[in-house]
Amino acid sequence: MRLEAAERFARGEKAEAVARELRVTSRSVRRWRRVWEEGGADAQRSKGPASVERLSAGQRERLECELKRDPLAHGWDDEFQGWMLKRVKLLIGRMFHAGFTIQGVWKLVRRNRACRNARSSAASNATSPARSTVRSSRRRPLLPGLLPLDAT
């Protein structure tokens, strides 16, 4: 989108017109124009992710293995024996001494699922993996298929 804006800047289009057509704020387009004027179209390219992942690939694999075990194995012995986001958050804190918010755990779980699905679909065209029962701490509806708890 920024590269398209840079092409429009080169053609002499006004910031408001670019913002309207790209459906972004005028402020963003003015910022992009300033960067373009200082460094050209190459300055508009992405500089990479804004932050570093908090868990390494090895830690994510280890977490996945621990999540295959039920919550009872980790000390939760109440009536609901499924993984809730709050429990996953606490488990990450215990295992890796890393603090996550509930929203951060949700994003981590969703990203891991997407990566795993991409790997499994590339490896074979088998049926989709079994769905897990992850719940948030606010007792929202089940979040099917978020944690890779199957043994594939």
Rank of each mutant, 00 (worst) to 15 (best):
E4V: 10
E4N: 12
E4F: 04
A5Y: 04
A5P: 01
R8V: 12
R8N: 10
R11A: 06
E13M: 10
E13Q: 07
K14A: 04
A15R: 06
A15D: 14
E16S: 11
A17L: 12
E21T: 14
L22N: 04
R23G: 11
S26I: 13
R27M: 13
S28V: 07
R30F: 10
R31K: 14
R31D: 13
R31M: 15
W32E: 05
W32T: 04
R34W: 09
E38N: 14
E38L: 15
A41V: 13
A43S: 04
A43I: 07
Q44V: 07
G48C: 02
R54A: 02
L55V: 15
S56A: 03
A57N: 08
A57G: 06
G58K: 01
Q59N: 02
E61A: 15
E61C: 09
L63W: 01
E64P: 00
D70F: 00
A73M: 06
G75E: 02
W76T: 01
W76P: 02
D77S: 13
D77P: 01
D78P: 00
F80P: 00
W83I: 05
W83Y: 03
L91N: 11
L91R: 11
I92D: 01
R94S: 11
M95V: 15
M95L: 15
H97G: 10
H97Y: 03
T101V: 04
I102P: 00
K107L: 13
L108S: 02
R111M: 06
R111S: 12
R111F: 04
N112M: 15
A114H: 05
C115K: 11
A118L: 13
A118N: 08
A118W: 04
A118S: 09
R119Q: 14
S121V: 15
S121K: 15
S124F: 05
A126L: 14
T127D: 09
T127I: 09
P129M: 11
R131S: 13
R131I: 15
S132I: 06
S132E: 08
R139N: 15
R139T: 13
P141Y: 04
L142F: 05
G145S: 05
G145A: 03
L149Y: 00
A151N: 12
